[in-house]
């Protein structure tokens, strides 16, 4: 797995594997990112990336079964904002480089699902997925030292 900078401060959130709990994670991420003074569109995108990751853990790692933990660690360092989403479910076949391939003029080709990974890759600067201490961990990192990351 890729090595990320050690966070200077971090916070852990833990929810049950239920989609109706994910909004709480979203609100927490939004609050933290807003507090950092990030642009509101960037805040939205960071919330979106984390929500997509948590949704994936619930829907795919746990196959939508409630009663299992999803843990989200938010780490902040000078270099980056880091989110780690961990579950104890099935390990996913996480393939990088996903892209949305459809013809905007042809309704039959429009995707109704499978957009989450592309969205995460578009938003985040670094993504890593692997097993650690018996859990699946997806790490999302957004650089804070690049002006583009803060204001795009």
């Amino acid at each position: 797995m890729m090595e990320f900078p050690v966070p200077q401060s971090c916070m852990k959130l833990r929810i049950d594997s239920r989609l109706d709990q994910v909004f709480m994670v979203g609100h927490a991420i939004r609050g933290i990112c807003s507090h950092l003074g990030l642009d509101k569109v960037v805040v939205y995108k960071l919330e979106l990336a984390v929500v997509e990751a948590v949704n994936n853990a619930i829907k795919h790692a746990y196959e939508s079964r409630p009663g299992y933990p999803v843990e989200i660690t938010v780490g902040l360092s000078r270099e980056c904002l880091r989110f780690e989403i961990c579950d104890e479910g099935n390990t996913l076949n996480f393939q990088r480089g996903a892209c949305l391939d459809y013809d905007p003029r042809d309704r039959k080709t429009l995707p109704e699902r499978g957009m989450g990974l592309t969205i995460m890759e578009e938003i985040m600067d670094e993504i890593s997925y692997g097993r650690r201490e018996g859990r699946n961990c997806l790490t999302l990192c957004k650089h804070l030292t690049r002006r583009r990351s803060l204001h795009e």
């Binding site: 939205y44 919330e47 929500v51 429009l110 995707p111 109704e112 699902r113 957009m115 989450g116």
Partner: peptide
């Protein structure tokens, strides 16, 4: 103020259901 990919997929599904 928030739509995720599943919500967007639902909107796409509605468009497809409307037909040409």
């Amino acid at each position: 103020d928030f739509i995720d990919s599943t919500g967007l997929g639902a909107i796409v599904s509605v468009l497809k259901s409307l037909g040409d």
